[in-house]
Simulated scan of single mutants.
Amino acid sequence: MVRHHSRSLACAIAFGAVLASSGAALAEDKITIIVGGMEKQIYLPAVLTQQLGYFKDEGLDVELLNSRAGVEAENELIAGAVQGVVGFYDHTVDLQAKGKYIQTIVQFSQAPGEVEMVSSKLADQIKSPADFKGQTLGVTGLGSSTDFLTQYLAVRGGLKAGDYTLLPVGAGNTFIAAVKQEQIAAGMTTEPTIGQLLKTGDAKILVDMRTPEKTAAALGGPYPAASFYVQSSWAESHKEEAQKLANAFVKTLRYISSHSAEEIAALIPKDYYVGDKDSYVRGLAEGKAMFTPDGRMPDGGPQTVLKVLQAFSKNVQGKEIDLSKTYTTEFVDAAAKTLGSAQ
């Protein structure tokens, strides 16, 4: 079953300790995947795969753990506490610059699904990222993909580091509270938080990156975002498990592509609606185009991600990054052959 409630990172760490001490049998019997916010629509494929029973169809015992932000999830992967992460592809580039090799084996989305929201009280003052100067901006966590994208928008708007402040405020209720309490002037978030803020009128959309077209306008090209990534060494030594996971996720992406937002939402745990199913469905309908239909990396996507990170990240600047080692299509190509033509 999907764990509907948020589980603390301490829980994930504790699980990792148990996993490490209990022998190889358990590690092979259960696959643990940490998700950078299961309630976020950008990570819908993870929960939907569980709900549709596709993991079980592949003979897999998969547990999904929840974390506040992708940066926490990647840390657990590197520590060996989990086998995989559902998070943003850009972490594979960032980590390679630090000498750590992880790779995406299924690409969920071709757009971030993120929106830079501005407090309605400041909407007349902040009309573009160029107006971020002197402001406090909300991100899920420092070192997270929302951090990366926010910094790039600022650079593209002509600003430099130090012109603004980044504040980690998480997502969902904590993000909403930060807006209402005027802790942040603007911030980056996803559905269903976007819909909640628009409904109450507390914030407005400043930069929309929920579709490939809007993403290209904001970032200069396709931006592969939500993905399933693992340590490269794990993918090499656990090809059978990796293939089964890819099969399950590709089936889910096909399902998303061929079904309506209403049909998809009907399968999701009701607490993910945050008390407003209509808003949830509307947000999903508007953003469903972010998902790839086949799990493949969009052409030119890795290059856009590298360009974005090189624009501001001292960690990446000046480093030789081998993009071919940040993702593989081996497993989704095999899944396509196994599953046959899309229904």
Rank of each mutant, 00 (worst) to 15 (best):
K30A: 11
V281Q: 08
L339Y: 08
D202L: 02
V93N: 10
I33V: 15
V308S: 05
G84R: 06
G195H: 07
T304K: 03
I42E: 01
A261H: 04
Y89V: 06
D333K: 12
D208S: 11
P192I: 06
E72H: 15
N315L: 11
V47M: 07
A73H: 02
Q50E: 12
T304R: 02
L48F: 06
R210K: 15
Y54C: 01
E236W: 05
A12P: 01
R296I: 00
G158W: 09
S67T: 14
T215W: 10
P302H: 04
G23E: 05
D202E: 14
N66I: 02
Q181W: 01
A225F: 13
A73D: 15
V85E: 12
V332N: 06
E114D: 15
A123H: 05
I126E: 05
R210I: 14
E74D: 13
A285W: 05
Y272T: 11
V106R: 03
S313I: 02
G143L: 02
V207R: 09
F132Y: 15
H4L: 06
I31H: 10
Q151M: 09
S145V: 09
R296M: 11
A265V: 10
A177V: 04
T104G: 01
Q303L: 01
E63T: 14
P224E: 09
G172Q: 01
G141W: 11
S257Y: 12
K204S: 12
A14E: 14
A334R: 13
P293E: 09
D90R: 03
Q310F: 01
K337Y: 03
V155G: 00
P298S: 03
R3E: 09
V2A: 01
M188L: 15
N173H: 05
I34C: 06
D57E: 15
V274F: 14
A217G: 03
E72S: 12
T189R: 00
V2R: 00
S109A: 15
S232P: 04
Q196G: 00
Q41F: 00
T189Y: 00
M117S: 07
L149P: 01
P293S: 12
Q83N: 11
Q51Y: 00
F175T: 01
A217N: 07
A342G: 02
G201E: 10
N173A: 15
P269R: 08
V230G: 00
T146Q: 08
A261W: 12
L219R: 07
S145I: 03
Q41N: 13
G162W: 09
Y229H: 15
L206N: 06
I205R: 13
K277P: 05
V316E: 11
Y255C: 09
V85Y: 05
A248E: 04
L60E: 11
K239C: 06
E182S: 15
L219P: 04
M290C: 05
N66W: 14
E213H: 03
G53T: 06
A123E: 14
D29N: 13
M38Y: 00
A336D: 14
T211A: 08
A342K: 07
A111R: 08
V179S: 04
M117D: 05
V71I: 15
A111H: 07
A289H: 04
G170D: 02
Y89I: 04
K204V: 10
G295F: 03
A265W: 07
H238K: 12
V207M: 07
G283V: 04
G134F: 10
M188A: 10
G59K: 06
